[in-house]
Amino acid sequence: MSGEVLLRAEGLAAAVDRRYVLLDLGLELRAGEVTAIAGENGAGKTTLLGLLAGERAPDRGTVRLAGVALAEADPAALASRIGVLGHRPGLYLELSAVENVVLFAALAGRPCTAAEALAHLQSVGLAAADAARPVRHYSRGMAQRAAIARLIASGATIWLLDEPSTGLDRQGCATLRALLRDAADQGRALCVVSHDPELLAAADRRLELRGGQLHDAGGA
């Protein structure tokens, strides 16, 4: 199914504090493709991801998931098909990484066992001993790894990632790039917002958000 459009945004407009940051914006996320979006601070990248995830409603335009507008989409379809990695890791601090992954996988409709959760965590470089500790004691980088494992376990076909390399060391960044490539090769559609040049270079399609619209910034 490589190349199939999984998520389509048309004529999107969104205002933040009465100022339009997105204007008549269109975007297609295709299966098997990593789309990277760069842009200056305040350009509207996080707002765009929020619209694509259905977390906020656009002032104009629509986002369609498999042809259905997000506003009318079944919550089950949204939760199971769109996975989001936001600015913050989004993990319960008093729970261990394993407990978090098991919980969020169930909420996304993909229940997994503790052993499967641990395998996901180890695939992003988190040791078993660390995975059993409460997230409160993690460094930012460790929490980010656990958040990435949470995204993998969700089984979502569309991944929306906001600065996913935040807090990661060089090894972690390399693991992340390989993981994103694998996810795309497995037929997922990925949209990555980042300032990380290496992450941007690894994308299939690079776009820049400027003046409320997306501009082609080249591709691999």
Partner: peptide, 12 residues
């Protein structure tokens, strides 16, 4: 945790 949106948008 910053997890409110994710949790309130479960499959149910």
């Amino acid at each position: 945790a910053g997890a409110l949106t994710t949790v309130s948008r479960s499959v149910a």
